[in-house]
């Protein structure tokens, strides 16, 4: 079985850990617990064993800690659909990723789609489509688009 490392990156508290847990263990918690360093989980999609690195939010922004990215076959850029700044930050984070490991397959998860105060600007959507990224409005809470998002990334990696 093929094994692929992917990294969840994005600002703190956007839902990287929650998305991973929903996907891997099918559990969701409302409590916010900052991830320190990296947590590694595995899940199987088709004939691929996915090794999901849930990278600490704050840390993934700093070049020093971009060491976690090394060896990743794909990236999930996670933003919080209700916090516009976390979406704006995605392009900076992408630059860090590119500098460290080059251009790898990417999907964008705009998370917390279950909440009301959705605030993703048209500019952001335009930017994502210019980059050629697939964008998913996900919710770790109700599970929408979570599998689809991971599935899409795996397909990009294996093709």
């Amino acid at each position: 079985m093929k094994k692929k490392k992917i990294c969840m990156v994005g600002d703190f508290s956007v839902g990287k850990t929650s998305l991973t847990q929903t996907f891997v263990n099918n559990v969701f918690s409302d409590k916010y617990l900052t991830t320190i360093g990296v947590k590694i989980d595995t899940a199987i999609i088709g004939d691929t064993k996915l090794i999901v690195w849930d990278v600490a939010g704050r840390d993934s922004l700093s070049p020093i800690n971009s060491s976690y990215l090394v060896g990743a076959a794909g990236i999930v850029l996670v933003g919080d659909g209700t916090r516009e700044n976390t979406i704006d930050d995605l392009s900076i984070i992408w630059d860090t990723v590119k500098n460290r490991i080059g251009e790898v397959p990417v999907v964008v998860a705009l998370n917390k789609a279950d909440l009301y105060d959705w605030s993703v600007s048209d500019q952001s959507y335009t930017f994502f489509s210019e980059q050629g990224w697939d964008v998913f409005s996900t919710s770790a809470k109700d599970g929408r688009n979570v599998e689809e998002m991971f599935q899409a990334l795996v397909e990009k990696i294996t093709n």
Partner: peptide, 13 residues
């Protein structure tokens, strides 16, 4: 996973 024998790397945590 994904690493090779030439990689020099620190994973602090």
């Amino acid at each position: 996973i994904g690493l090779d024998a030439q990689t020099e790397l620190d994973l602090p945590m």
